[in-house]
């Protein structure tokens, strides 16, 4: 593997730079959207104590997004907040799974949010995120490797939290089990692009930006299906109504970005 790259200018000068920036967009956009979706739950949790715990997870994800956008800023791509809030939908690289709404309805008026779907979606994302971060800890781009190690430290709580809940829901009654089964079926039709590496996929692993990227999808599928198998849930067929890694998103992303950037867009040059 090529020697570690620390300096952003040096990274930009490598022929593999497009693969690095593509990877960083995926990382940043994934966490931004999953963090946004989790933040919509704030104040509406199913149990008071849980509302508080899930709020920490939402903050962690948004904080991870901020870290990645700052890495992009250091690479001269623009200001972190502009990158998070002003880029058009076609440039977004998050998976469709994380942009999907928590349920019907607006978060501030009459939200009919689905807690089972929220947990299943986040669980699928955590599983992938952890595999991805484990690889990124060895990234050739040193600032990314350091960020990944710090972020990975917070992910164990997320995964354990989601699993604790799913275990409870799957083993305590037919109604909650049925809700989780429906949520798995729904999420399976959205998560097809989660493990897609995008247009520069091969270079991501070959250039050492993300060692192990080429096996990440298979490892993820195995981890998820082994978890589901513990509860006698059949492995689902993974598909997706588009491909977020290639900028082909659902209309839900437009709506999410409009909310997320509503205030900032009033005056992106102002101090907020």
């Amino acid at each position: 593997m090529a020697a570690s790259v620390r300096d952003p200018e040096e990274a930009k000068a490598t022929p593999d730079f497009p693969a690095l920036s593509e990877l960083l967009w995926q990382l940043a956009d994934d966490d931004l959207l999953i963090g946004f979706r989790a933040s919509e739950w704030l104040g509406l949790g199913v149990h008071i104590e849980e509302d508080i715990a899930f709020a920490s997870i939402a903050q962690d994800e948004m904080g991870h997004a901020m870290t990645y956008f700052q890495l992009l800023e250091a690479l001269g791509m623009g200001r972190a907040d502009d990158l998070a809030q002003l880029r058009p939908v076609s440039e977004r690289r998050n998976s469709i799974l994380v942009e999907w709404p928590n349920g019907e309805g607006d978060y501030a008026e009459t939200p009919h949010f689905d807690w089972a779907f929220t947990l299943v979606r986040h669980f699928l994302y955590d599983q992938f995120e952890i595999i991805r971060l484990e690889g990124l800890c060895q990234s050739r781009y040193a600032p990314l490797a350091e960020a990944a190690a710090a972020i990975l430290g917070e992910k164990a709580y997320h995964r354990d939290h989601q699993q604790l809940w799913l275990d409870r829901l799957l083993t305590h009654g037919a109604e909650s089990r049925a809700r989780v089964e429906r949520a798995v079926a729904q999420a399976a039709q959205l998560a097809g692009d989660l493990t897609d590496l995008g247009p520069w996929g091969n270079q991501v692993a070959e250039a050492g930006w993300w060692p192990g990227a080429d096996q990440a999808g298979a490892r993820w599928q195995q981890a998820v299906e082994s978890f589901l198998g513990r509860y006698q849930l059949a492995p689902p067929t993974w598909s997706c109504p588009g491909n977020g890694r290639r900028g082909d998103h659902s209309p839900h992303l437009d709506a999410a970005l409009a909310v997320l950037s509503e205030v900032y867009r009033q005056d992106p040059l102002a101090q907020w």
Binding site: G35, F36, S39, L42, A55
Partner: peptide, 24 residues
């Protein structure tokens, strides 16, 4: 809470989430 997803910057989004979380 109405302003949590809309807070202007990434930093403000984090801070207001923490603040509203404290209220709960």
């Amino acid at each position: 809470k109405e302003w949590v997803p809309k807070a202007p910057t990434l930093y403000r989004k984090l801070a207001i989430m923490a603040k509203v979380q404290d209220e709960i």
